[in-house]
Design a protein around this nucleic acid. Structure first.
Length: 411
RNA sequence: GUGGGUGUAGCUCAAUCGGUAGAGCAUUGGACUGUGGCUCCAACGGUUGGGGGUUCAAGUCCCCUCACUCACCCCA
């Protein structure tokens, strides 16, 4: 028996409907906010991600699906931001620009609850705006989207990780503090400090955090401009009436972030509790060969969001309303014509095989959950009627053939 | 990549100390020949994930392997 590859899923039924509802709400809501939907390729040249995400991050080091064809290396996209910027540059689009993307992403991780190797992301990117006002704006939009979809129970965590300039000075201070404590740190942290020093705060080990609790934080060591920017973000968030918690240890796993970073976490979801995450990336566009352009954005995991929501989320739905059965091959033409008529009037309608025993046909009608079963055979032909059985009550009535259209329209 | 848990009928799960693999639901048929659901009766359904080992005897114990799942790591 064939099996799907690890970490992939078949999505259908109720779950698919709910995911599609999220997409539909995202398109209409962010559309109103001036976001244009963009769809970038499922695979890109691998170097795009090495450059943007950071060559020493775990994503690039061992989570990307890479393949070589004709001596060229490709990668399934592990995230959406770099492709959007690449598309912006390549198509010579103009600033400021707002993009919405809804795409599958791919990362070769061990699957667990709320984490798959092929997973969806809904994300927004706001290109060409540098002010703190816009960081607050996209956070507000994220929150309003969650409200709109009916999601509850989120905490917003906020931090600023500054620019390369503040980081250079801060790294020295942190190094001086850590030096006498280096023996207390785990091997991972020692390695992290060497080539990606901010990431040490991502460590989950208590022993390491005992050291970090008293360590100087980047947030308290920002340069003048970055500090003012961060104060601005907080000020605008307060004006929006958005509650947030400062988390000075919040850093993020992708190298391209500057200044503002944030996460929307769900209380009591377990390990995969980050539903929306993002921040500012003022240097990435230039890094990818485009104009010097400040940008900010975030991405959301719809599958994870779904885990936080009650089952009875409204969704666009179509139930089977009619099932047409006949009493023998003779009535096939009439059955098919009737079925097509009902479908043309916007109802879901299935026809049974008129050669099968009536009992069997009705049983199938019941199984697919039809509201009405329409029966046509010898008796009905003689009387010029359709027999219509309301499945819920079992009540069966005869409807004149010429009255039938009116009947459908009342349903 | 590292650790834990779980794999028995289509599904959910039993099976005592190692001693003939079982139930409910689902499916199919019948009771009921042009009428589904409810009830009753019957039938169908298995390489116990796969491979090896120990034993007179393995679903059960041991080793390997695969899959699923949770957690670490990392991330949406």
């Amino acid at each position: 028996m064939y099996q799907k590859p690890k970490g992939t899923r078949d999505i259908f039924g109720d779950e698919l409907k709910r995911l599609e509802t999220m997409n539909a709400v995202a398109r209409s809501f962010f559309g109103q906010q001036g976001y244009q939907e963009i769809r970038t390729p499922t695979f890109e040249f691998a170097t795009l991600f090495d450059r943007s995400i950071g060559e020493t991050t775990d994503i690039v080091e061992h989570e990307i699906y890479k393949f070589e064809v004709n001596r060229k290396w490709y990668a399934l996209k592990p995230e959406g931001t770099a492709p959007v910027l690449r598309a912006f540059i390549e198509n010579k689009l103009s600033l400021p620009a707002r993009f919405l993307y809804i795409c599958s992403m791919y990362r070769r991780e061990r699957p667990q609850k709320g984490r798959y190797r092929e997973f969806l992301q809904i994300g927004i990117e706001l290109l060409g705006e540098s002010e703190a006002f816009y960081d607050a704006e996209i956070i507000d939009q994220g929150k309003r989207y969650l409200d709109l979809i009916g999601a509850k129970g989120f905490n917003i965590e906020l931090n600023s990780i500054g620019c390369p300039e503040c980081r250079r000075a801060y790294r020295e201070r942190l190094g001086t503090y850590l030096e006498p404590n280096i023996s207390k740190l785990c091997a991972d942290c020692r390695r992290r400090f060497e080539h990606n020093f901010l990431r040490i705060f991502d460590c989950k080990k208590e022993t390491c955090h005992k050291v970090y609790d008293k360590a100087p934080k980047i947030t308290d060591n920002l340069c003048k401009d970055c500090a003012a920017h961060y104060d601005g973000v907080k000020m605008y968030l307060r004006k929006y009436g958005i509650e947030y918690a400062e988390n000075k240890k919040l850093v993020r796993g992708l190298d391209y972030y500057t200044r503002t970073v944030f996460e929307f976490k769900h209380r009591g979801l377990g390990a995969q509790d980050t539903i929306i995450a993002g921040g500012r990336y003022d240097l990435l566009m230039k890094e990818l060969g485009g104009p010097n352009t400040p940008c900010t954005g975030w991405a959301m995991g719809p599958e994870r969001l779904l885990l936080t929501m009650p089952k009875e989320v409204p969704h666009i739905d179509k139930e089977v309303t009619f099932y047409v059965v006949g009493m023998g091959e003779r009535y096939m033409d009439e059955i098919i014509r009737l079925r097509n008529d009902i479908q043309a009037r916007g109802h879901v309608c299935i026809s049974g095989n008129p050669d099968a025993p009536l009992k069997q046909q009705i049983k199938k009608a019941d199984k697919v959950g039809t509201a009405y079963t329409v029966i046509y055979g010898e008796d009905e032909e003689k009387e010029g009627v359709y027999a219509v059985k309301e499945m819920k009550t079992g009540k069966q009535t005869k409807i004149q053939r010429e009255d039938f259209k009116a009947f459908i329209e009342r349903i």
